[in-house]
């Protein structure tokens, strides 16, 4: 299945954020909340079991200057293999001039899945972005499939964060220099002008990025432990 969806949020003269363009394509179904206010709320619903091997999904989101959008998932994403053995892919592009918060639910990399995920975020000078990723390596008692997940964020063309996570190779997932055998890895990227001090514990940290912004990273055995760290910033 190939699908592309698009969402554009603009400000209106009263200071509200309104959804100007909303183009869903199964399985990427965008459901706007019926409310009027400074922050538009849209849920991203997977309306068919996806992604399966062979699927190629793309979502483009634009948030114009003066507008705010909260884009939320509603359920965990299960990455599944297809019958053909082909890989699946997803591409999410953010063009942010206003304020965007993207909080999908966790992604579970089931055994034999083979997925490539890319998130590209382009911010202008004053834009703010908050985005979360929580990966679960396999369902209970299951070995992880293969996933490459890349995030690249730039502000006015300058790179802020460019990070690829690759999971599904037991020798690397289990290495103390890889994922240290942890089943859940989570990151929360916050690109704004707030300066936050470095903080951390045994398997988590909150750190300032070199060119501005903050990244929280947590490794753990379960989603609850990991999201607790991410919720704290």
């Amino acid at each position: 299945m190939k699908a592309s969806a698009r969402l554009v949020v603009s400000p209106d003269p009263h200071g509200n954020s309104v959804v100007r363009v909303l183009r869903s394509m199964t399985p990427l179904t965008l459901v706007p909340a019926r409310r009027v206010g400074p922050v538009a709320l849209v849920h991203l619903v997977s309306s068919v079991t996806a992604p399966l091997g062979g699927d190629s999904l793309s979502l483009t989101v634009e948030v114009e200057r003066g507008a705010s959008l909260e884009l939320r998932g509603v359920a965990a994403t299960l990455l599944l293999p297809g019958s053909s053995g082909a890989e699946s892919s997803s591409l999410v592009r953010f063009h942010v001039q206003g304020n965007l918060c993207y909080k999908p639910e966790p992604t579970v990399v089931t055994g034999r899945a083979n997925h490539t995920a890319v998130v590209e975020a382009e911010l202008d000078g004053h834009a703010q972005l908050r985005t979360r990723e929580v990966l679960v390596l396999g369902r209970a008692g299951e070995a992880s499939g293969a996933l490459s997940s890349t995030v690249r964020a730039t502000r006015c063309g300058k790179p802020l964060l460019h990070q690829q996570l690759v999971v599904g190779s037991p020798s690397i997932d289990g290495s103390p220099a890889g994922l240290a055998g942890k089943r859940v890895v989570g990151t929360e990227l916050v690109l704004d002008s707030v300066a936050r001090e470095s903080d951390g514990g045994e398997w988590w940290s909150v750190v300032p990025l070199a060119a501005g912004g903050t990244l929280a990273t947590a490794l753990g055995e379960d989603v609850v432990t990991v999201t607790r760290v991410l919720d704290a910033i």
Binding site: Q164, P176, A177, V185, W204, V207, T217
Partner: peptide, 10 residues
């Protein structure tokens, strides 16, 4: 662009 989350935390 490979990240090393555990190495970063260490």
């Amino acid at each position: 662009a490979l990240g090393s989350p555990a190495l970063d935390l260490l």
